[in-house]
Design a protein around this nucleic acid. Sequence first.
DNA 1: TATAGAACCTGTAGTAACTACAGGTTCAAG
DNA 2: CTTGAACCTGTAGTTACTACAGGTTCTATA
Lengths: 141, 141
Amino acid sequence: MEPFADPPTSAMFIGELSGRTGCNIETIRYYERVGLLPAPPRSAGGHRVYGVDHLKRLTFIRRGRQLGFALKDVRGLLALVDGGGYTCDEVQALTLSHLDEVRLKIADLKVLEGVLGDMAAECEGGTVPACPVIEALFRGA
Amino acid sequence: MEPFADPPTSAMFIGELSGRTGCNIETIRYYERVGLLPAPPRSAGGHRVYGVDHLKRLTFIRRGRQLGFALKDVRGLLALVDGGGYTCDEVQALTLSHLDEVRLKIADLKVLEGVLGDMAAECEGGTVPACPVIEALFRGA
DNA sequence: TATAGAACCTGTAGTAACTACAGGTTCAAG
DNA sequence: CTTGAACCTGTAGTTACTACAGGTTCTATA
Protein backbone atom coordinates (compact mmCIF):
# COMPACT_ATOMS: atom_id res chain seq x y z
CA MET A 1 0.00 0.00 0.00
CA GLU A 2 2.61 2.43 1.14
CA PRO A 3 5.38 2.53 -1.44
CA PHE A 4 8.35 3.11 0.82
CA ALA A 5 11.90 2.37 -0.24
CA ASP A 6 13.23 -0.90 1.09
CA PRO A 7 15.47 -0.96 3.10
CA PRO A 8 14.45 2.17 4.94
CA THR A 9 16.44 5.19 3.96
CA SER A 10 18.35 6.89 6.69
CA ALA A 11 16.20 10.01 6.48
CA MET A 12 12.43 10.20 6.56
CA PHE A 13 9.68 12.52 7.60
CA ILE A 14 7.13 11.67 10.21
CA GLY A 15 4.60 10.38 7.67
CA GLU A 16 6.94 7.68 6.46
CA LEU A 17 7.93 6.71 10.00
CA SER A 18 4.24 6.47 10.78
CA GLY A 19 3.62 4.29 7.73
CA ARG A 20 6.52 1.99 8.49
CA THR A 21 5.64 1.46 12.13
CA GLY A 22 1.86 1.65 12.00
CA CYS A 23 2.08 4.22 14.75
CA ASN A 24 0.04 7.25 14.05
CA ILE A 25 1.59 10.67 13.63
CA GLU A 26 0.04 12.32 16.65
CA THR A 27 1.21 9.42 18.76
CA ILE A 28 4.78 9.73 17.51
CA ARG A 29 4.85 13.38 18.48
CA TYR A 30 3.33 12.41 21.80
CA TYR A 31 6.11 9.90 22.45
CA GLU A 32 8.63 12.61 21.74
CA ARG A 33 6.87 14.98 24.14
CA VAL A 34 6.94 12.47 26.96
CA GLY A 35 10.55 11.57 26.35
CA LEU A 36 10.23 8.05 24.96
CA LEU A 37 11.47 8.91 21.52
CA PRO A 38 14.39 11.36 21.23
CA ALA A 39 13.67 14.59 19.42
CA PRO A 40 15.04 14.18 15.90
CA PRO A 41 16.92 16.84 13.93
CA ARG A 42 14.83 19.14 11.76
CA SER A 43 14.87 20.03 8.09
CA ALA A 44 15.56 23.62 7.10
CA GLY A 45 11.83 24.24 7.22
CA GLY A 46 11.34 22.63 10.61
CA HIS A 47 10.09 19.17 9.67
CA ARG A 48 11.26 16.28 11.84
CA VAL A 49 13.84 14.11 10.09
CA TYR A 50 14.12 10.57 11.42
CA GLY A 51 16.79 7.94 10.96
CA VAL A 52 16.84 4.15 11.28
CA ASP A 53 17.60 4.45 14.98
CA HIS A 54 14.28 6.18 15.51
CA LEU A 55 12.54 3.56 13.43
CA LYS A 56 14.04 0.84 15.58
CA ARG A 57 13.14 2.50 18.82
CA LEU A 58 9.60 3.29 17.81
CA THR A 59 9.12 -0.29 16.62
CA PHE A 60 10.21 -1.42 20.06
CA ILE A 61 7.81 0.93 21.82
CA ARG A 62 4.91 -0.02 19.63
CA ARG A 63 5.51 -3.73 19.98
CA GLY A 64 5.72 -3.35 23.72
CA ARG A 65 2.39 -1.55 23.73
CA GLN A 66 0.82 -4.19 21.51
CA LEU A 67 1.93 -6.74 24.06
CA GLY A 68 0.06 -4.81 26.68
CA PHE A 69 2.99 -3.26 28.50
CA ALA A 70 2.14 0.09 30.07
CA LEU A 71 4.16 3.01 28.77
CA LYS A 72 6.06 3.16 32.04
CA ASP A 73 7.03 -0.49 31.58
CA VAL A 74 8.18 0.23 28.05
CA ARG A 75 10.12 3.13 29.48
CA GLY A 76 11.71 0.77 31.98
CA LEU A 77 12.63 -1.70 29.28
CA LEU A 78 14.15 1.06 27.17
CA ALA A 79 16.11 2.30 30.15
CA LEU A 80 17.58 -1.16 30.56
CA VAL A 81 18.50 -1.28 26.91
CA ASP A 82 19.88 2.26 26.95
CA GLY A 83 21.88 1.53 30.06
CA GLY A 84 23.43 -1.30 28.13
CA GLY A 85 24.20 -3.43 31.14
CA TYR A 86 20.85 -5.19 31.40
CA THR A 87 20.64 -8.87 32.08
CA CYS A 88 18.28 -11.44 30.71
CA ASP A 89 17.05 -12.05 34.25
CA GLU A 90 15.84 -8.49 34.68
CA VAL A 91 13.95 -8.52 31.42
CA GLN A 92 12.45 -11.90 32.09
CA ALA A 93 11.27 -10.74 35.49
CA LEU A 94 9.46 -7.77 33.95
CA THR A 95 7.93 -10.00 31.31
CA LEU A 96 6.73 -12.59 33.80
CA SER A 97 5.29 -9.91 36.03
CA HIS A 98 3.35 -8.52 33.10
CA LEU A 99 2.27 -12.02 32.16
CA ASP A 100 0.81 -12.41 35.63
CA GLU A 101 -1.21 -9.25 35.18
CA VAL A 102 -2.50 -10.47 31.85
CA ARG A 103 -3.54 -13.79 33.39
CA LEU A 104 -5.27 -12.00 36.23
CA LYS A 105 -7.19 -9.88 33.81
CA ILE A 106 -8.20 -12.93 31.82
CA ALA A 107 -9.45 -14.59 34.99
CA ASP A 108 -11.47 -11.51 35.93
CA LEU A 109 -13.00 -11.29 32.49
CA LYS A 110 -13.92 -14.97 32.54
CA VAL A 111 -15.86 -14.41 35.73
CA LEU A 112 -17.65 -11.52 34.03
CA GLU A 113 -18.32 -13.68 31.02
CA GLY A 114 -19.91 -16.31 33.22
CA VAL A 115 -22.09 -13.89 35.14
CA LEU A 116 -23.22 -12.00 32.04
CA GLY A 117 -23.94 -15.25 30.22
CA ASP A 118 -26.02 -16.55 33.10
CA MET A 119 -27.91 -13.30 33.37
CA ALA A 120 -28.68 -13.13 29.68
CA ALA A 121 -29.76 -16.77 29.68
CA GLU A 122 -32.46 -16.04 32.19
CA CYS A 123 -34.10 -13.48 29.95
CA GLU A 124 -37.32 -14.70 28.49
CA GLY A 125 -37.05 -12.14 25.76
CA GLY A 126 -40.15 -10.69 24.24
CA THR A 127 -41.69 -7.42 25.21
CA VAL A 128 -42.20 -8.27 28.83
CA PRO A 129 -41.68 -5.11 30.86
CA ALA A 130 -39.53 -6.92 33.40
CA CYS A 131 -36.07 -8.39 33.11
CA PRO A 132 -33.90 -10.60 35.29
CA VAL A 133 -30.83 -8.63 34.24
CA ILE A 134 -32.24 -5.41 35.63
CA GLU A 135 -33.26 -7.16 38.80
CA ALA A 136 -29.80 -8.62 39.22
CA LEU A 137 -28.25 -5.20 38.84
CA PHE A 138 -30.51 -3.75 41.50
CA ARG A 139 -29.62 -6.59 43.83
CA GLY A 140 -25.96 -5.60 43.73
CA ALA A 141 -22.76 -7.54 44.22
CA MET B 1 -16.80 -3.64 60.09
CA GLU B 2 -19.11 -0.78 59.39
CA PRO B 3 -21.87 -0.79 61.99
CA PHE B 4 -24.75 0.52 59.92
CA ALA B 5 -28.36 0.08 60.95
CA ASP B 6 -30.08 -2.73 59.16
CA PRO B 7 -32.34 -2.21 57.24
CA PRO B 8 -30.95 1.05 55.86
CA THR B 9 -32.54 4.09 57.37
CA SER B 10 -34.22 6.42 54.98
CA ALA B 11 -31.69 9.17 55.63
CA MET B 12 -27.95 8.89 55.50
CA PHE B 13 -24.93 10.99 54.78
CA ILE B 14 -22.51 10.25 51.99
CA GLY B 15 -20.16 8.28 54.24
CA GLU B 16 -22.82 5.73 55.06
CA LEU B 17 -23.93 5.47 51.44
CA SER B 18 -20.32 4.89 50.54
CA GLY B 19 -19.94 2.19 53.17
CA ARG B 20 -23.15 0.45 52.15
CA THR B 21 -22.34 0.38 48.45
CA GLY B 22 -18.58 0.08 48.52
CA CYS B 23 -18.49 3.05 46.20
CA ASN B 24 -16.08 5.68 47.31
CA ILE B 25 -17.17 9.14 48.30
CA GLU B 26 -15.44 11.05 45.54
CA THR B 27 -16.98 8.68 43.03
CA ILE B 28 -20.47 9.23 44.41
CA ARG B 29 -20.09 12.97 44.02
CA TYR B 30 -18.70 12.35 40.55
CA TYR B 31 -21.80 10.34 39.59
CA GLU B 32 -23.91 13.20 40.78
CA ARG B 33 -21.89 15.69 38.74
CA VAL B 34 -22.29 13.67 35.56
CA GLY B 35 -25.99 13.15 36.13
CA LEU B 36 -26.11 9.44 36.92
CA LEU B 37 -27.23 9.90 40.49
CA PRO B 38 -29.80 12.62 41.23
CA ALA B 39 -28.66 15.41 43.52
CA PRO B 40 -30.04 14.62 46.95
CA PRO B 41 -31.55 17.14 49.36
CA ARG B 42 -29.20 18.78 51.83
CA SER B 43 -29.10 19.09 55.59
CA ALA B 44 -29.30 22.54 57.14
CA GLY B 45 -25.53 22.71 57.02
CA GLY B 46 -25.27 21.58 53.40
CA HIS B 47 -24.50 17.88 53.77
CA ARG B 48 -26.02 15.55 51.20
CA VAL B 49 -28.85 13.47 52.65
CA TYR B 50 -29.59 10.26 50.79
CA GLY B 51 -32.58 7.94 50.90
CA VAL B 52 -33.11 4.31 50.00
CA ASP B 53 -33.83 5.26 46.40
CA HIS B 54 -30.33 6.63 46.07
CA LEU B 55 -28.94 3.51 47.66
CA LYS B 56 -30.79 1.38 45.16
CA ARG B 57 -29.70 3.41 42.18
CA LEU B 58 -26.07 3.57 43.23
CA THR B 59 -26.06 -0.18 43.83
CA PHE B 60 -27.29 -0.62 40.28
CA ILE B 61 -24.63 1.67 38.86
CA ARG B 62 -21.88 0.03 40.81
CA ARG B 63 -22.93 -3.47 39.90
CA GLY B 64 -23.09 -2.49 36.25
CA ARG B 65 -19.58 -1.13 36.46
CA GLN B 66 -18.35 -4.27 38.20
CA LEU B 67 -19.78 -6.23 35.31
CA GLY B 68 -17.68 -4.14 32.99
CA PHE B 69 -20.39 -1.97 31.49
CA ALA B 70 -19.14 1.45 30.46
CA LEU B 71 -20.77 4.36 32.23
CA LYS B 72 -22.62 5.26 29.08
CA ASP B 73 -24.05 1.74 28.97
CA VAL B 74 -25.09 2.03 32.59
CA ARG B 75 -26.66 5.34 31.69
CA GLY B 76 -28.53 3.64 28.88
CA LEU B 77 -29.76 0.90 31.17
CA LEU B 78 -30.89 3.45 33.72
CA ALA B 79 -32.69 5.40 31.03
CA LEU B 80 -34.58 2.25 30.11
CA VAL B 81 -35.51 1.68 33.71
CA ASP B 82 -36.42 5.32 34.26
CA GLY B 83 -38.50 5.37 31.11
CA GLY B 84 -40.43 2.49 32.60
CA GLY B 85 -41.43 0.96 29.31
CA TYR B 86 -38.35 -1.13 28.70
CA THR B 87 -38.61 -4.66 27.44
CA CYS B 88 -36.60 -7.71 28.35
CA ASP B 89 -35.45 -7.89 24.73
CA GLU B 90 -33.78 -4.49 24.85
CA VAL B 91 -31.92 -5.29 28.01
CA GLN B 92 -30.88 -8.69 26.78
CA ALA B 93 -29.52 -7.17 23.58
CA LEU B 94 -27.36 -4.73 25.54
CA THR B 95 -26.15 -7.53 27.77
CA LEU B 96 -25.28 -9.82 24.89
CA SER B 97 -23.50 -7.05 23.07
CA HIS B 98 -21.40 -6.38 26.13
CA LEU B 99 -20.78 -10.10 26.52
CA ASP B 100 -19.35 -10.12 23.01
CA GLU B 101 -16.96 -7.35 23.91
CA VAL B 102 -15.85 -9.23 26.99
CA ARG B 103 -15.23 -12.37 24.94
CA LEU B 104 -13.25 -10.40 22.38
CA LYS B 105 -11.10 -8.94 25.10
CA ILE B 106 -10.50 -12.37 26.56
CA ALA B 107 -9.44 -13.67 23.17
CA ASP B 108 -7.04 -10.75 22.70
CA LEU B 109 -5.52 -11.27 26.11
CA LYS B 110 -5.05 -14.97 25.49
CA VAL B 111 -3.02 -14.18 22.42
CA LEU B 112 -0.91 -11.85 24.53
CA GLU B 113 -0.56 -14.52 27.15
CA GLY B 114 0.73 -16.97 24.56
CA VAL B 115 3.22 -14.56 23.04
CA LEU B 116 4.52 -13.35 26.39
CA GLY B 117 4.80 -16.90 27.68
CA ASP B 118 6.76 -18.00 24.62
CA MET B 119 9.04 -15.02 24.85
CA ALA B 120 9.77 -15.53 28.53
CA ALA B 121 10.38 -19.23 27.96
CA GLU B 122 13.21 -18.46 25.58
CA CYS B 123 15.10 -16.53 28.21
CA GLU B 124 18.10 -18.36 29.45
CA GLY B 125 18.11 -16.25 32.56
CA GLY B 126 21.35 -15.48 34.27
CA THR B 127 23.31 -12.32 33.84
CA VAL B 128 23.75 -12.65 30.11
CA PRO B 129 23.69 -9.17 28.61
CA ALA B 130 21.37 -10.24 25.83
CA CYS B 131 17.76 -11.29 25.88
CA PRO B 132 15.36 -12.83 23.39
CA VAL B 133 12.54 -10.67 24.74
CA ILE B 134 14.39 -7.49 23.87
CA GLU B 135 15.24 -8.83 20.46
CA ALA B 136 11.63 -9.76 19.82
CA LEU B 137 10.53 -6.26 20.75
CA PHE B 138 13.01 -4.71 18.35
CA ARG B 139 11.81 -7.00 15.60
CA GLY B 140 8.32 -5.60 15.86
CA ALA B 141 4.93 -7.02 15.05
C1' DT C 1 9.55 28.94 -12.12
C1' DA C 2 5.15 29.23 -10.29
C1' DT C 3 1.63 26.94 -7.89
C1' DA C 4 -1.39 23.77 -5.77
C1' DG C 5 -2.30 20.72 -2.42
C1' DA C 6 -0.43 17.13 0.49
C1' DA C 7 2.20 16.89 4.38
C1' DC C 8 3.99 19.05 8.09
C1' DC C 9 4.20 22.42 12.28
C1' DT C 10 2.62 24.19 17.30
C1' DG C 11 -0.45 24.37 20.90
C1' DT C 12 -4.54 23.35 23.17
C1' DA C 13 -8.39 20.66 24.50
C1' DG C 14 -10.96 16.47 24.74
C1' DT C 15 -11.62 11.33 25.99
C1' DA C 16 -12.98 7.57 30.30
C1' DA C 17 -13.70 7.13 34.85
C1' DC C 18 -12.27 8.29 38.37
C1' DT C 19 -8.78 9.98 42.31
C1' DA C 20 -6.42 13.37 45.08
C1' DC C 21 -5.73 17.26 47.02
C1' DA C 22 -6.32 22.20 49.40
C1' DG C 23 -8.60 24.97 52.19
C1' DG C 24 -12.63 25.55 54.53
C1' DT C 25 -17.36 24.24 57.19
C1' DT C 26 -20.57 21.13 59.82
C1' DC C 27 -21.81 17.33 62.83
C1' DA C 28 -22.14 14.97 66.97
C1' DA C 29 -20.03 12.75 71.00
C1' DG C 30 -18.14 13.70 75.57
C1' DC D 1 -18.47 23.96 74.38
C1' DT D 2 -14.84 21.77 72.44
C1' DT D 3 -12.73 18.68 69.33
C1' DG D 4 -11.87 15.94 65.60
C1' DA D 5 -14.15 13.13 62.18
C1' DA D 6 -16.87 13.83 58.41
C1' DC D 7 -18.39 16.78 55.11
C1' DC D 8 -18.21 20.75 51.54
C1' DT D 9 -16.47 23.08 46.79
C1' DG D 10 -13.43 23.44 43.21
C1' DT D 11 -9.48 22.30 40.72
C1' DA D 12 -5.96 19.42 38.92
C1' DG D 13 -3.90 14.94 37.99
C1' DT D 14 -4.04 10.14 36.02
C1' DT D 15 -3.29 6.90 31.16
C1' DA D 16 -2.39 6.94 26.52
C1' DC D 17 -3.68 8.88 23.26
C1' DT D 18 -6.75 11.59 19.62
C1' DA D 19 -8.64 15.68 17.44
C1' DC D 20 -8.74 19.86 16.09
C1' DA D 21 -7.49 25.01 14.53
C1' DG D 22 -4.81 27.85 12.22
C1' DG D 23 -0.64 28.31 10.00
C1' DT D 24 3.92 26.81 7.24
C1' DT D 25 6.79 23.74 4.17
C1' DC D 26 7.63 20.34 0.56
C1' DT D 27 7.46 18.65 -3.85
C1' DA D 28 5.36 17.14 -8.14
C1' DT D 29 3.58 19.07 -12.10
C1' DA D 30 2.37 22.68 -15.69
